[in-house]
Simulated assay, not measured.
Amino acid sequence: MFELFTDRARQAVVASQDEAIALGHDFIGTEHLLLGLAGTDGSTAGEVLREQGVELTRARQETLRVLEAAGIAATGGRPAKDALASLGIDVEEIQRRADDNFGPGAFQYPRPAYTEDAKKALEQTLSEARALGQERFGTEHILLGILAAGEGRGLDVLAALEVDPDGLRGATLARVSGDAT
């Protein structure tokens, strides 16, 4: 499926993974997808989000607040690291050696998995693009997918930022053209 994404859409998905890791989460939810979209410069979704008042730094803060309110702590993959440590594997040492040999950030463990809500949003991305007659998926389709899925903490973050999902959907659709980004 990811081969059908535009370059910027792929950048946004990678950025969502990076956001999850940077925030210490061992999962990628719709809130991280939203952060990835907000942080992707020159993308349709990023521009629409900024026009709607979604600024990346504040969205990060709200993401942490929403997750903390839901009782979800940033673990940084601690349970997985602890399990490996019980077998005598030092993940931090592996990371240090990888950084030394291949550059900072070359090895990330654990790789966050997508939540069911994020998977649903990415599946909706396909439906949204096809409904608009497009074969490739841009950032705008990912945003529309998050909104169409109707579930996930990304919508809670938007609510905390006082962004109306219907208004955001309308603004996104108004920007959609045959040149997906």
Rank of each mutant, 00 (worst) to 15 (best):
M1K: 02
F2A: 00
F2P: 09
L4Q: 13
L4E: 01
T6Y: 07
T6M: 08
D7I: 13
D7K: 14
R8K: 15
A9Q: 06
A15S: 11
A20H: 11
I21G: 02
I21R: 13
L23I: 10
H25Q: 14
D26F: 00
F27S: 11
I28H: 07
H32C: 10
H32R: 10
L37Y: 00
T40I: 11
G42L: 12
T44C: 13
T44I: 15
G46W: 04
G46D: 01
E47V: 13
V48H: 00
R50V: 12
R50A: 15
E51V: 10
Q52K: 11
G53N: 10
V54K: 04
L56G: 05
T57K: 09
T57C: 08
R58Y: 03
R60E: 05
E62T: 02
T63R: 04
T63Q: 09
R65V: 12
V66S: 08
L67S: 09
E68D: 15
G71P: 10
I72P: 00
I72N: 08
A73I: 02
A73Y: 05
A73E: 15
A74P: 05
T75L: 13
G77K: 11
G77S: 11
G77H: 07
R78S: 14
R78A: 15
P79A: 03
A83C: 02
A83Y: 00
A85M: 11
G88E: 02
G88K: 09
D90T: 06
E92R: 10
E92S: 09
I94G: 03
Q95C: 12
A98I: 04
A98T: 10
A98G: 08
D99V: 01
D100F: 00
D100Y: 00
N101M: 12
F102L: 15
F102P: 04
G103R: 04
A106Q: 11
F107T: 10
Y109M: 05
P112R: 01
A113V: 14
Y114L: 15
T115Q: 05
T115K: 01
T115D: 06
A118N: 00
L122W: 01
L126T: 03
L126M: 08
S127N: 09
R130K: 03
L132A: 13
L132P: 01
G133M: 00
E135C: 08
T139A: 07
E140P: 11
E140W: 07
H141I: 01
H141M: 11
L143H: 01
G152Y: 08
R153K: 15
R153A: 15
R153Y: 07
L155E: 05
A159Q: 12
A159E: 08
V163R: 01
P165F: 04
D166E: 15
L168N: 07
A171T: 11
T172P: 15
T172C: 06
L173F: 08
R175L: 12
V176G: 06
G178D: 14
A180L: 12
